[in-house]
Amino acid sequence: MAHSRSPYGARRLAIVCFALLLVALFLLPSQIQGLLQYLDGPVGYVVRIPLEAIAFIDAGVADRWEQYVALQGVREENQQLRKEIEWLRGQQSQLRESVAATERLTALLQFKQQALPTMVAAQVIGRDATNRYRAIILNKGEGDGIKPDMGVVTPAGVVGRVVKTTGASSVVLLVTDPSNAIAGLIQRTRDEGVVEGTQQGLAQMKYIPLLSTVRDGDRVVTSGLVGDFPRGLVIGTITRIDKQEGALFQSAELMPEVDIGRVEEVLVIQTSYGQSTKAGASADLPGKPSP
């Protein structure tokens, strides 16, 4: 292995650069962040090209694997799903009756008709670059009207919320991340609380009133009071109640409704119920995801 002598000028320059960076980061953090944000947009578009190409190949390989190789146990799963469909058909007819009754009562009480939220469909193209956060990367960003704090869902329930955007991509902090907090509501008891992620990759609902009759199996939905989630989106099902002696509140562990590890397509909520569209997605139909 050959060795060569280093230029001392370069070494000094490196130290000066790093010292300046440290000073700038500690004295002018928002200015540095703002300066780099100007470049985030175009850089995001450039980085998107290799990212989407590899995500496309990755999705293709995963598809082939699931279609041809990982078919063990499909027969049993199929039978199980057929039984579930039968049960759900029964539920559906009951729910239709309930919807009709609700519509009649709504008209009777002259409640204001709520506008459906506007959503944009996006594809998951990656996971957080570090291990410290549970986050996913979407193939749509500021250019598609996505902004930080927007809610992200699938038809099954809540996925998380947007925390960062570039011109062509966005980062979504998952509901299972301990840094995330969403206002939740227990559907049966109507008690409110805050849903946070846990270290085990589940979620927990905190600040449930002590007198609440919450129990295992209760569903937790978004309360719609704080943040960009409309009311009534499913977050998860309670699996364990934690009631400590002398505590002011009780908490509960939740199993998220969405299988976070397998989510591939999501919907980003651009406007919640009754809000005006600010994100420039006027072409999107209310309640219908745009492709």
Partner: peptide, 25 residues
Amino acid sequence: GELEGLLVGLAIGWILSLFSAGELW
């Protein structure tokens, strides 16, 4: 060397932070 290590490290840090929920600094 140090200078290239620093500059490439900064570029990597910046680009990867665009795809992470973590802090840029």
